[in-house]
Design a protein around this nucleic acid. Structure first.
Lengths: 113, 113
DNA sequence: CAGCATCCAGGAGGATACTG
DNA sequence: CAGTATCCTCCTGGATGCTG
């Protein structure tokens, strides 16, 4: 039995993390940015075909407020806005990997039976 | 740039994982079972004070269908039902840890500025 | 191009009361 | 004890059209 309580374990950092990663499209956006580095709004929309404009805007805004991604707007016409991961955003890689890894062994364990 | 596409990476195993872990209380239940090993329904309710009976039933049922937890009912009066993690359920520990770890460094990076 | 405004449906999740 | 059964609210997310 672990020594930490539910409160300590799931308490602050865990819920903080879940809070910023919650939402249908967060991981997709994160992965694409992890993959490509920097993308414009339209490119993100193309990279995640099923997302609606409204949702992409909302999720990006949320991630930006949470300091996970960085938004850089250029004063040009037509407008250009580039999104990339912050340092803390890049450090999410192990999280995505561990979930993906678990998913693989989970899929295996399901097909074995 | 990674070689996998969004489809390959987020495609099957990742979404499979997210699917079974989705929901407000999944991680809380998982953590408590990881912590205590085996618990009766009422004990789970006590361990997660804010959850409603309805939600606990739903989440447990979902996790059982997904083969992540094991339900064992005893033919007694009053009834006794015990929940525990399956092998694949126990292997979720790294996922929970990586999220929790990221949450910690995230909290640090927020407070530094 | 990079969004914002609006409307809308469906589902997640809460509160309460009841049963074998 | 271990759930069911209802009812209800709010929020997520989709569709569409418009703007600087």
């Amino acid at each position: 039995m672990r020594e930490k309580t539910l409160e300590e374990y799931l308490g602050c950092p865990f819920h903080l993390a879940m809070n910023t990663l919650e939402g249908k499209w967060k991981f997709a956006i994160l992965y694409v940015l992890l993959d490509k580095g920097t993308l414009r709004f339209k490119d993100l929309e193309r990279a995640i075909p099923d997302i609606s404009t409204r949702m992409l805007v909302k999720e990006l805004k949320h991630l930006e407020e949470k300091k996970v991604i960085v938004r850089k707007a250029y004063a040009e016409v037509p407008p250009r806005v580039e999104y990339s991961l912050s340092e803390i955003g890049k450090s999410l890689s192990p999280v995505i990997d561990s979930i993906s890894d678990w998913g693989k062994s989970y899929a295996n364990s399901l097909s074995e039976k």
